[in-house]
Simulated scan of single mutants.
Amino acid sequence: MEQTRTAVVTGASSGIGAATARHLAREGFHVFCAARRSDRIEALAAEIGGTPVTCDVTDPDSVAALADVVGDRLDVLVNNAGGAFGSAPVAQADADEWRRMYEVNVLGLMEVTKALLPALLASGAGAILNVGSTAGRIAYEGGAGYTAAKHGTQVVTETLRLELWDQPVRVMEVVPGMVRTEEFSLVRFGGDQAKADAVYAGVAEPLTADDVADAITWMVTRPSYVNIDELVIRPRAQAAHHKVHRQG
């Protein structure tokens, strides 16, 4: 009897993480839905037949508990937990916001990867997919803390691929541009709905969480010898990070 494939998705309580969990479940994966908000991941896991794991990726003890639940074998790890906090220029930067962004986007990714790598290797064909951002490729005003953190995500991904070059695990990064989810911009702007809405004002069709989840699922389900190093995905309206077609 063929063994059920397993996947861990961090930051699974909303947005790209929740969508990815649903897409992977439809592909036959048993998904460990990891996030801090227990009520959300419990509802999601019940919906898709997965396993909820309350986990703060910045807490090593919490991550160790996730690894215990996953067990000795894992096929796919999607490091999706992340976030942007604030948009102040460097001259008015909040060190605590920068620290939070580095902790979740870089240190959290490291902690989860380190804890689950033995199980990924044990599968014989593991896949690590890190959710980056086009902010990890360019700079823009008011984004230094987030772009620095997401550049960190990119560099960790590249380094992992070099370090694991002779091991049975692929290392990939999906790099979304403008994605409209229910929480990302709202969290960034401290709950200011008007500022969050302004990010997408006039953009007829920004990407959705499902668009990115579809790309992630395609990447991790390629044959085990095929490594999609990075996949940049933007809406058609976004020719570049700074050049977005807005109607009206």
Rank of each mutant, 00 (worst) to 15 (best):
A45I: 00
A46H: 06
A46G: 09
E47Y: 04
E47F: 01
I48V: 11
T51H: 07
T51K: 11
T54F: 00
S62Q: 11
V63C: 02
A64N: 14
A67P: 08
R73E: 11
L74Q: 14
V78P: 15
A84P: 10
F85E: 11
S87E: 11
A88W: 09
V90S: 15
D94L: 04
D94F: 01
D96Q: 14
V106N: 08
M110D: 07
E111Q: 15
K114Y: 01
A115M: 09
L117P: 14
P118D: 06
A119E: 03
A119V: 00
G126C: 03
G126I: 00
A127F: 01
I128V: 08
V131K: 13
G132L: 03
G132K: 09
S133V: 01
S133A: 04
R137S: 02
I138W: 02
Y140V: 01
Y140E: 10
G143D: 12
A144T: 08
T147V: 05
A148E: 01
A149R: 10
V155Q: 12
V156S: 07
V156C: 09
V156P: 09
E158C: 02
T159D: 08
L162G: 13
E163F: 01
E163I: 00
V169F: 05
V171Y: 06
V171M: 08
M172T: 02
E173A: 07
E173H: 05
M178D: 07
